[in-house]
C-alpha cells in the first residue's frame, strides 16, 4: 500500500521526522511502579489487580485468590499486612461470587486497599502507628462498602413485601369502595339533609326580598 510511495519526498520527510521524534537512543524512563515492582513481592498481585480493573475473568480471579493465599503465607508474621490480605481476599471472593452484580464501589475499595498495602510493603521502616492508621482508613472504607452491599441486598427482597403490602392496601381500599344498600341509604339521607339545609337557607334569603317587593 504505502510502501510504493516510500521514495517520494513527502514520505522521506515524514520518515525522517518520525525517526527524529521517536529515536530510541535514550534509556526508557522506568515506570515508577515497574521500578518498585522489581523488588516487590506484590508484583504479581499488582498485575492481577490491574487486569481485574480492565476485565473480570474467572482466570484472573482465580489467580488473584491464589496470590492472596501465597502472600498470606509470606506475611504470616505481620498482622497488619495479614489483615490487608484478608480484606483483599474477601473482596476477591465477593467479586467472584457476584460478578456482574458487583457493587460499583468495590473496585475503588479494591484498588485503594491494594495501593495502601503496596505502600506499606514498599516501606519496611514505616512506624507501626502509621501502618495501623493506614489499615484503619482502609478498614473503614471496606466496612462502608459492606454496609452498602448489605443495604442493597436487604432493599431488593424488601421491595417485594413492600409491593405486596401495597397491593393488600389497594385491595382493602377497593373493598371499602364496594357500595352496600345500607351505605347507599345513608348517603341518600345525607344528601337529603344537605338539600333540606340548603333550601331552608335559600328560603331565609328569599323571604325578606319578597316582603320588600
Amino acid at each position: 500500500m504505502a510502501d510504493s510511495s516510500k521514495s517520494d519526498p513527502l514520505s522521506t520527510a515524514l520518515d525522517n521526522r518520525l525517526d527524529e521524534l521517536f529515536r530510541e537512543d535514550e534509556p526508557t524512563p522506568a515506570a515508577p511502579a515497574a521500578a518498585k515492582a522489581k523488588t516487590s513481592p506484590l508484583d504479581e498481585l499488582k498485575k492481577i489487580v490491574l487486569s481485574i480493573d480492565w476485565e473480570i475473568t474467572p482466570e484472573a480471579l482465580d489467580s488473584f485468590m491464589d496470590q492472596v493465599r501465597l502472600l498470606k503465607e509470606v506475611y504470616r508474621d505481620d498482622k497488619v499486612i495479614l489483615v490487608f490480605l484478608q480484606v483483599l481476599g474477601s473482596l476477591g471472593q465477593y467479586i467472584k461470587s457476584s460478578r456482574s452484580k458487583v457493587h460499583p464501589s468495590t473496585f475503588n475499595v479494591l484498588n485503594s486497599v491494594f495501593a495502601r498495602l503496596d505502600e506499606i510493603v514498599s516501606a519496611p521502616k514505616m512506624p507501626l502507628a502509621i501502618r495501623r492508621k493506614l489499615l484503619q482508613a482502609e478498614m473503614d472504607a471496606y466496612q462502608g462498602l459492606r454496609a452498602k452491599i448489605t443495604q442493597r441486598r436487604t432493599a431488593e427482597p424488601a421491595a417485594k413485601p413492600a409491593a405486596a403490602t401495597d397491593t393488600a392496601a389497594r385491595t382493602q381500599a377497593s373493598a371499602g369502595e364496594t357500595v352496600t344498600p345500607e351505605m347507599l341509604s345513608r348517603a341518600v339521607a345525607e344528601l337529603k339533609e344537605f338539600i333540606r339545609t340548603e333550601m331552608n337557607a335559600l328560603r331565609q334569603l328569599v323571604k325578606p326580598a319578597a316582603r320588600r317587593d
Binding site: M1, A2, S5, S11, L14, D15, L18, D19, F22, E24
Partner: peptide
C-alpha cells in the same frame, strides 16, 4: 519492554499519511 512498539507506530503513521495523501 518496548520492543517494536515504535516500529509499529512509525509504520502505521507512514501508511496512514500516505493513504490520506493518495
Amino acid at each position: 519492554k518496548g520492543t517494536n512498539v515504535v516500529a509499529t507506530l512509525k509504520k502505521i503513521i507512514s501508511l496512514t499519511v500516505a493513504s490520506i495523501r493518495k
